[in-house]
């Protein structure tokens, strides 16, 4: 009955939502932000430990749907070791992917490309980018709350 949804709920997404990576407190973190989706009340908080402008470690906490949780989880694996500028560039490409289903050539999205099906479900785009907004806000400042609205 749900074959159409297999491109949205890919195996990797289901896996990361059930067993999120880098989930929980991050001792020694120096940047924090919280993201909220007022539509559903979901919230995710992201903690980052920076070494200069390199993301040495990153973790998240919170609750959300499978898409939101998996996106946060895959994001943390993708961002670790990246510089702030690399993280911003990656988010731009990821954002384009979830909005249009198209990735720029040489986007090097890796595992992030499993979110290519999100664009066909406009109501779910916010779920996919919630953790990214929080992560970028954390790195841009210290204590921030961001909203998908």
């Amino acid at each position: 009955m749900f074959d159409n949804l297999n491109d949205l709920y890919q195996q990797v997404i289901l896996d990361h939502s059930k067993a999120p990576r880098n989930f929980g407190e991050l001792p020694g973190a120096d940047h924090f932000a919280e993201g909220r989706n007022p539509l559903c009340g979901d919230q995710v908080s992201v903690a980052v430990k920076m070494q200069g402008d390199v993301i040495e470690d990153i973790r998240f906490k919170g609750s959300g749907c499978a898409i939101a949780k998996a996106s946060a989880s895959v994001m943390t694996t993708a961002l670790k070791g990246k510089t702030l500028n690399e993280a911003r560039t990656l988010f731009e490409k990821f954002h384009e992917l979830v909005l249009t289903g198209q990735a720029a050539p040489c986007a090097q999205l890796g595992k992030l490309s499993v979110f290519g099906g999100v664009h066909r479900y406009p109501a779910r785009v916010k779920c996919a980018i919630l953790a990214w907004h929080a992560a970028l806000a954390a790195m841009a400042g210290d204590q921030k709350k961001v909203s998908t609205e």
Partner: peptide, 9 residues
């Protein structure tokens, strides 16, 4: 299973 997933399905 989160409500948004239930509702999407």
């Amino acid at each position: 299973i989160h409500a948004h997933d239930v509702v999407t399905f």
